[in-house]
Every structure is written in C-alpha cells, then in structure tokens.
Nucleic acid binder design. Sequence first.
DNA 1: AACAAAATTGTCTTTCTTTGACTTTTCAAA
DNA 2: TTTGAAAAGTCAAAGAAAGACAATTTTGTT
Lengths: 162, 162
Amino acid sequence: MRLSDTIESFIKAMLQEDQPEVELKRNELAEYFHCAPSQINYVLATRFTPDHGYVTSSQRGGGGFIRIVRVRQSSGDHLNYLLHERVGDSLDAQSAQILCAQLAERKVVTLEEAHLMAAALSPQALSAPMPEAMKNTLRAKIFRCMLLTVMQQKKPQDQENG
Amino acid sequence: MRLSDTIESFIKAMLQEDQPEVELKRNELAEYFHCAPSQINYVLATRFTPDHGYVTSSQRGGGGFIRIVRVRQSSGDHLNYLLHERVGDSLDAQSAQILCAQLAERKVVTLEEAHLMAAALSPQALSAPMPEAMKNTLRAKIFRCMLLTVMQQKKPQDQENG
DNA sequence: AACAAAATTGTCTTTCTTTGACTTTTCAAA
DNA sequence: TTTGAAAAGTCAAAGAAAGACAATTTTGTT
C-alpha cells in the first residue's frame, strides 16, 4: 500500500471516531510515518480537497497545526448536486443569481443568506479588468466555497431530507 | 496552547465580567505568565486591535498601566465605518476574516452569514493565477457588495431603533 | 519499452511567536 | 529644577511551524 493511502486512512480514521473535525501537527505526523513533512501537504491536496468534502485550514509558527473538517454529504442532496454536478469550474453571473434564488426557495438557506451570496457573485463584486472567462472561473470557486460552508452549517437532521 | 492565546483569553475573561474596560500592569501580567513584557504588546497588537473591536491606550512611568476598551457601536454605524473608512479598495485575506468575525460578534449579522462572507473572501475562494494585489482589490469589492446587501437588509430595523 | 501520471523527497520561503536589548515617558524626591 | 527609578514602547533577532515548488522516483498504461 502506498504511503499516501496509509496517511489518508489514518486521518480518516481520526475523523471517523466521533468528531467531524481534527487538528494535527504536520511535523509529528511526518515523523510518525517517516516521511517528508511536505508529504502531508500532498495527501491533503489530493485527498482532502473541497471536492472531496473537506475544508482545511492551518496556522504556522510556534504551536502551529493543520485543521481538517469533514463536511457531511448526503446523496440526493440539492447542495451535493450543485457542488458536484451543476457548478463546474465556470459559472456566469446570471446562472449564479438564479441558483442563489433557488437555494432560498428550497429553504436551503435564508433569504438574507441568498442575497449575500448573490451579492458576492454579482457583476459589480467581480468588476475588474480581466477577461469574462476568468471571472466565471472565479465565480464558480467562490460559489463552491460558499456552498461548502452552507453544508457545514446544516444540522444533521436537516441533512436527511433535501 | 500558545502563550499568546492564553494571555488573550485571560484578558478577555477580565473584560467579560462586567466592565467593557480594563486596566492592567504590563510587568505584573508578564511576570504572572513568566514571559517578556513585550509579549503583552504582541498580544495587544495581534488580538486587541480596532479590527477586533478594541481600543488601547497606556501610560508610562510610575503608576503606569495599559487600558483596553471594548468599542460599542450600533450596527448602522459599524457598517458605515467599514464601508467608508476601514475598507478601501484593497483588503487582505486575514483582515477579511477578522472583520467578518467581528460582524458576527457585534451581532450585525448572524454567525452563519459571517461564515458565508468569510468563505467568499477566503484564499481558497480567490485562488487563481493572479497577483496578490489584484486579489486584494477583488476582495475589497466583494466585501463592499456584501456589506451593502447587509445594510439594505438592516434598513427597516434601523428606522425603528438606533 | 516508452511515456504519463502519481508519489516522494528535499530545499527554500513565509508566517507566527517568543525573547531580549535598548529607548522613551512619567512621576516624585532631592 | 534636576535626576533617577519605574513604568511602557520599539524593534530586531531567534525559534517554531507550515507552505510552495521543483526534482526525482515509482507506478501504471499502451
């Protein structure tokens, strides 16, 4: 078995137990597996991405750490559909507005939250001297980040149904 | 846990009790935590800034002290301050996170809304092959758009109270 | 076997924290 | 009014941890 897979399993086991969140020390983990610290980054970059349903953050310096949060994903979920199927790596302004409105309509988010999302994805928010294609790529990324955050906030009982 | 975090908690606990204001002796506190006095300044500089909702002042010499005051402001005033003074046309990722957290702490927005805003402004959301300066410009624009949206949503309430 | 993709390693960079040496301000006693 | 002690401030260096990325090795596919 490859080291990366072993480390992936190890981290997932930590997450499985009970908490959907774990903090680890990069250097400790690297030493435990007798590998370069950057190997840990490789595992995170290839197996714990937003698309895989994980959000990671970190702190450098003394007492630094890497935090991994697992976002629960239920199949058949509207959010899941948006994240993995509807939104690719490009999203135009008009579609974004429609999708935000739908999220509110389906009561996945509040009306206020939908407005906030729409504002962040609006042409004004993304007005800058860059090609439209790049804006659409950016819009998709921003939308996905917000979607993941919404999934994170949804309570367990909400996740059973759509 | 980092010393800085411990000291931060300690000071916040002092503030919690009743007063929105506390006075402390730098040397005493440093001795209490067995650290260099300048460590206290570091904590103030990184965790008790206006962005964090605090204003500090001090007096040197015999009987000297450091005063920390938690700033109170109405939602409307706070939003105006952010929009017209604090956020120019550039905003770095870290400041963005702090300002979003502050909006929630002051109950200008809900915690969920703050998370959504933070997500839209995060480095991941704005990860693209472009110079950091351009990202900061974009971040300021996105933040402004969201702030304006929050303002519009707040309007009806502001007309009733302050 | 040849090539492409994935994994591994190592080096250098960046960020955050802690410490210490030196400076400045203030008060009060001589 | 001078002066010295008692604060707090400033700043830079050292230390601690994570990130970025390129170079190399391994693995899988045709």
